[in-house]
Computed example of a mutant assay.
Amino acid sequence: MSALQVLRQSRTPMDNVQLTTAILSHIQGLAAQGRCVRFNWVPSHVGLHGNEAADEAAWETTRHPAVALNILPSIHGTKVLARRAAVCAAGQQYRQLVQTSRQAAWHKQTTDNNEPLHPAQQLSRAEEVVLHRLRLGCGILEELRDEFEDQPCEHCPHLARRPLAHYLLSCPVTVRLRQRVGPLEDAAALVLRQVQENLPLLLEVARASPPPR
């Protein structure tokens, strides 16, 4: 029935484009000759002589040598192939970036297969920025300067060469984030990866004591 519906619809076919177009072209050619083509749907496998004969003829063709036909992919199939190619190219570019970018390497450690966060509540723009900066491992502006020295922490007296790593690994205000991670020797990015399973806790700590910027 679906094949007849495709032939009856007025819009451009989405699947089996070449086959459908060829059938419609033949129908139009016969109509131009004054002939009328009529399709009748009949139930299959109920003993109708004509339908059984058609099934037998179709089965007989499977015993003949295979014939290769170059059929253009459907629009849907083309879109699927394009999406797969885009995902593959993006993944390859991301893997190359991880080798050369510290922030990309940090992001790979803090995420699971590059999965986005799915907070249970609506976040403000400021909260989204904080989480984004943490997941990217964004350092403070002074770290980009050649004369950068140890930076005092905003939440404790400690002087840190890497303020964000100190914030996650040893600052007292984030001790609750480290309870499930283990030894402080673990990479700071792994702290974020573990604690993202408890996103409300991460948000609570980041709101009360924002990370360095």
Rank of each mutant, 00 (worst) to 15 (best):
I75V: 13
A66F: 10
R95I: 01
V87W: 14
Q122D: 11
E115F: 05
R102M: 09
P65F: 02
L48M: 12
S124F: 05
G50E: 11
G50H: 13
K108F: 00
A54F: 10
N51A: 13
N70W: 12
L81V: 07
A120Q: 11
A58Y: 02
R84K: 15
A85I: 07
V80G: 03
V87F: 08
S124P: 08
P43T: 06
E115K: 06
D55Q: 06
A105N: 06
P73S: 02
S124E: 05
V87Y: 08
R102T: 07
T111I: 00
V87A: 07
E56Y: 10
S101M: 02
T110N: 01
G50W: 09
N70T: 08
D55P: 03
V67W: 12
N113S: 04
L123Q: 04
R84V: 12
H118P: 05
A58C: 08
T100Y: 11
V87H: 10
E115S: 09
N51L: 11
A104R: 04
Q93I: 06
K108V: 00
H76D: 12
S44L: 04
R83I: 03
H107K: 08
H107M: 04
R63H: 13
E60H: 14
H64F: 14
K79W: 15
N114S: 10
E52H: 04
Q92Y: 14
N70Y: 12
H49L: 14
G50T: 12
A53V: 06
L123I: 00
L48T: 14
V46S: 07
